[in-house]
Amino acid sequence: MGGAVRTMRDNKKKKFTLAATYIFLTVIAVAMLIPIYYLLVTTFKTPEHAAVAPMALPSSLDFSGYIKAFEEMEYPRAFRNTFLITLISVTGIVLFSSMAGYVLNRKSDKKAGQLVFLLLLSGMMFPYQMSILGLYKLIRGLNLMNSLWSVILVDITINLPFAVFLMRSYMATVPMELDEAAKIDGAGVFRTFTTIIFPLMKPTIATVAILNTLNVWNDFMGPLYFLQSRKKDVILQEIYRNIGQFSTDWTGIFPMMVLGIMPLMIFYLFMQKYIISGVMAGSVKG
């Protein structure tokens, strides 16, 4: 009998805890979503309406703001540039960092391996913008001004150290025995890497790819410095140009902000399960 009472009490307590948990989670979820909701509904409002009733649903779905923003941002071109920069940079980061991470883990007992790793690590904390003049001269000397390659090379470089750091940590979970078995089978280092190791690194590759897609897509200073010609500029630069110039109709920039975050957002909404589990699986060594 006493047991039954205790179970009931436990059940009650459990239910209470569960309810509290849901309330807690919902409050945070609302805090996450309200700004995004505000961003979306304001695109359909006049400044006056947005000021008076910021949370109200728009009275009509007028897409003319989006069409105007789409045209003013020269969206297809800006999208293409952003996409190319991101695609090439992320590919480069993944390739170079996985190779380096593999070697630096396997050679972490060697002086040279440690030294190279320390060298790369030292770059992690230091913002490259500090040496912008030198970088500028370099890019100019290589004749890469106003070329997407300038941003690609810089973006790969600045994001490499942390990617190597992640890859190297992850490699610690891939047993050495695999290398040795491959060696006995007669495979060279490079073949061992491409056929055996690289596929095993998938989880951390996903993490690195996702993190760097965000970093590169959202890099703003690089393009601002190196891509001055409008034909070469990226989505963020288009937003920045227009935001700086708006004076009268402040809701007019909201469609631009939405168009700015839309590509990654859509990608995320469709892929969120894979993205989240990708980052989960690959970020920490097991």
Binding site: M99, L120, Y128, S131, G134, L153, I156, T157
Partner: peptide, 15 residues
């Protein structure tokens, strides 16, 4: 990785 890092990070830093 090392070359890119040297060229686009270390050299400008030395500048």
């Amino acid at each position: 990785a090392v070359l890119l890092f040297l060229i686009f990070f270390v050299i400008p830093l030395f500048f």
